[in-house]
Write a protein that binds this DNA or RNA. Structure first.
Ligand code: SF4
Ligand code: SF4
Lengths: 162, 162
DNA sequence: CTTATACGGTACCAAATTAGTCCCCTATTG
DNA sequence: CAATAGGGGACTAATTTGGTACCGTATAAG
């Protein structure tokens, strides 16, 4: 139930690209263009790995690439229109918790005598919906200042806790 | 985004245990007791592997074990009160899509300069809720004969759904 | 009390997957 | 033409996963 580290990195980077650039240059109208090298420098992830990720994201239609000098990547769409499900699917293949969902049969060697073939679809669908409901824009927001456990602690009388 | 094969098997077996036994013996009142060897035979999964799974599930309090002759496993609770989230957590550890959720910090080496630490929690929570909403009882039902889209059609008054 | 049954725990190994690297090609700018 | 920057694919090392083996302990039957 843990997703690949690369997928995690990809989301971090996409959020980074999607975030409005510090410098308000001529790119104001369109979306920001960032090179793989920049991403590597900003994120600490090694360049070859970043490059690999970007390629995959571009193939999936999440990033638009521009080759040649002055080239780079930019979001293919507004961050509000890119979902987590999409990103994950781009990097890890279709969201399928088990081998027998998605209609694809024959992947599981015991599926003929398995009395539950169809039931996983419920879970799968629930998860996919959850992942569809979160967009890249949601991930670009400033992280909430209060960690989960501190919810109660933050309500202490001394703290002015919203 | 794929869960372990073992987790899949575990759910299949749990559903199998939870299903009302063909033979209505003295166990009618309590829950059915099944040995690891039986499970292995029924499922095709090799015995040592089954045993390992059962152990884990017993430790997690999902199965109750009875040692000695005539021993075996049975569900610790009614299938309606066992959630997918619980089963998955028992076998794969707490549900945490990335290294920086659940409050556990320091697992990710770049989390200090990652501008999104808290945001994954949203996704994580969404997934966990989705998994909490499905119980073992839901997984024990006969797989629906109709593919997902037929959900509305299945509610027709005319069909007595057999 | 002895024996057969069946779970409990741990250590271990092999296969599969993942993360990361390398190298060369193609496109674009100037 | 030279410099930049992505595209593609093969390759390797590290980690995780799936599966096995062995020995100990509890319990019921006889
Ligand atoms: S057929 Fe059964 S064992 Fe195979 S993937 Fe589906 S649920 Fe799992
Ligand atoms: S801190 Fe950032 S990079 Fe690290 S696990 Fe969390 S989201 Fe991913």
């Amino acid at each position: 139930m843990r997703l690949n580290r690369l997928t995690d990195y990809a989301v971090v980077m996409l959020a980074h690209i999607g975030r409005p650039g510090r410098e308000s240059g001529p790119e104001a109208g369109g979306r920001r263009v960032v090179t793989a090298a920049e991403m590597a420098a900003d994120s600490g992830v090694p360049l070859p790995t970043v490059a690999k990720l970007m390629k995959l994201l571009a193939q999936a239609g999440i990033l638009a690439s521009q080759r040649g000098a002055l080239g780079g990547y930019r979001l293919a769409r507004a961050p509000e229109r890119i979902t987590m499900a999409e990103i994950i699917a781009a990097l890890e293949g279709p969201i399928a918790l088990t081998a027998c969902v998605d209609g694809r049969e024959g992947d599981c060697e015991v599926e003929s005598l398995c009395p539950m073939r169809g039931n996983w679809d419920k879970v799968n669908r629930a998860v996919r919906q959850a992942l569809d409901a979160v967009t890249l824009a949601d991930m670009s927001l400033e992280p909430q200042r209060f960690p989960p456990v501190a919810a109660a602690a933050a309500a202490r009388p001394v703290a002015q806790a919203s």
